[in-house]
């Protein structure tokens, strides 16, 4: 459903993405792993339209979206949980969730989706009047994911959702990701926690300094010696 072809991205003189290509099939969980600074965040930001590519093509369901605004891409079913959660701290949990549905007009369905998010994350229902900035890190991550679901995405990008969370919470976040995928949403997951990401991924790409150096099924990469050494601690 998502295909990116030979994408190049520059920040001034820095060549951050050097001809990246990857595909994500409908229904899959695809993970993108790699060291800090490899270009994972930039890849997601380029696909969701926050950063312009200098060359290359992005196709969503066969349509070229390379030159569309971020807003148009949200309309076409892309939703992005950014690195560091980026909830709106001075707005309430409910307002954050409502903003997730910003482009939607179907009031009844929005209400139903809000209920769905509250069922998935009961803590958000308890705190709906609370300012998002006062939530704990794990709660903010749940809010960021819930907010992204409020646009009813076809494909969900998650940028290091486990960052800075206690191990128990990390497990919970991964269960949630699996759940969302089982409910029919395609997932593109960026992670530093390579072992957990590879475990749940159908397909994986490995990035190093702006290029994709390896790809395969999650299973294959977990067995690969290079990956074991570099990312799985042995």
């Amino acid at each position: 459903m998502l295909e990116i072809k030979d994408i190049n991205v520059h920040f001034g003189g820095i060549h951050a993405l050097k001809g990246i290509s990857m595909t994500v099939q409908r229904g899959e969980i695809v993970t993108l792993i790699g060291a800090n600074g490899a270009g994972k965040t930039t890849t997601l930001r380029t696909i969701s339209g926050l950063k312009k590519s200098t060359s290359g093509q992005i196709l969503l369901d066969g349509t070229d979206i390379t030159n569309l605004s971020a807003q148009e891409r949200v309309k076409r079913g892309i939703s992005h949980v950014p690195e560091g959660r980026r909830v709106f701290p001075a707005m309430t949990v409910l307002e954050n969730l409502e903003l997730g549905a910003f482009l939607r007009r179907d009031k009844a369905n929005i209400a139903a989706d809000l209920k769905m998010v509250y069922e998935r994350f009961p803590i958000l229902a308890d705190r709906k009047k609370q300012l998002a900035g006062t939530l704990s890190g794990g709660e903010q991550q749940m809010l960021a994911i819930g907010r992204a679901l409020m646009s009813r995405p076809d494909i969900l990008f998650l940028d290091e959702p486990s960052m800075g969370l206690a191990p128990l919470l990390v497990q919970e976040i991964f269960n949630i990701i699996l759940d969302i995928n089982n409910a029919g949403t395609t997932i593109l997951l960026v992670e530093q926690n390579a072992s957990m990401a590879l475990k749940i991924a159908h397909k994986a790409y490995v990035m190093e300094t702006g290029s994709i150096v390896l790809s395969g099924t999650g299973e294959e990469l977990m067995q690969s010696d290079g990956i074991k050494k570099a990312y799985l601690g042995g």
Partner: peptide
């Protein structure tokens, strides 16, 4: 509060 995050909301 956050331009990038706002853009991601559409």
């Amino acid at each position: 509060l956050d331009k990038d995050a706002a853009e991601l909301m559409g």
